[in-house]
Structure formats: structure tokens, C-alpha cells
């Protein structure tokens, strides 16, 4: 199992989630977050905005589905032809165990 944390633009959230659901990855958790990246935020005039709103999507998927999920997020989360600064990041971490509470079982 792998935990995929994808940080995407808020306006791309619905599209990304719809595409994931269409590909069979319906289960997801999302949180509204703020953050900045390598560019140290956005500078408009003299004002620096370093708490830029993003949406964090959390998904736990079996190891073999990792590439599919990442491909969908990369393709839909991108803006413009070659992507733009601020389109987000994807982090992948290992998950050792998963329990489903409603069925009281181990596994997704």
C-alpha cells in the first residue's frame, strides 16, 4: 500500500477527482491547505503572498496502481501546455497496514 499526497490548485480539484473516480479510484480525502514553493510565494508589486491556497488530496492505493494515479494527477493537474509554477506536487509514502472500520477488517 502507498499513500499518495497530491497538492493541486483549488480550481483543478474537481477535474482531478472526477478523472480519478472515472479511472476507478473513487476513495479520496481532501483538505484545504496553504503553502508556498521554491519560488518563495508570489510577489505582486511590493506585496509578497507566501500562503497560497491549495488542495491536498490524500489517497491510499495498492502498490501496482501508483503509476496510474500519478499519471492522472500529472495530466489533469497541469495548467498550460508545459505546466506552470504553482501546479503542485505529489508525494508518495509507504503505508504498512490499513484497516476498514465499517467492515472491521484489515485491508482497503
Amino acid at each position: 500500500m502507498l499513500l499518495i499526497r497530491a497538492i493541486v490548485r483549488p480550481e483543478k480539484k474537481d477535474e482531478v477527482l472526477a478523472n480519478l473516480s472515472g479511472a476507478g479510484f473513487n476513495a479520496a480525502t481532501m483538505v484545504d491547505v496553504v503553502g508556498r514553493g521554491k519560488q518563495k510565494g508570489i510577489k505582486i508589486g511590493g506585496m509578497v503572498y507566501d500562503e497560497i491556497p491549495k488542495v491536498l488530496i490524500l489517497m491510499v492505493v495498492p502498490d501496482e496502481d501508483k503509476d496510474k494515479v500519478i499519471k492522472i494527477v500529472l495530466e489533469t493537474g497541469r495548467t498550460g501546455a508545459n505546466g506552470t509554477f504553482g501546479d503542485g506536487k505529489i508525494f508518495v509514502s509507504p503505508v504498512e497496514e490499513v484497516y476498514t472500520i465499517s467492515r472491521n477488517t484489515k485491508g482497503l
Binding site: L3, P94, V95, V98, I101, S102
Partner: peptide, 12 residues
């Protein structure tokens, strides 16, 4: 309810 009770993940 049989559905929607949530999930527990354990990460190192």
C-alpha cells in the same frame, strides 16, 4: 451502517 465508518492507515 456497514459503510462510511472510516479507515485507519499505519505509516512508518
Amino acid at each position: 451502517h456497514g459503510i462510511g465508518d472510516g479507515t485507519i492507515f499505519i505509516l512508518p
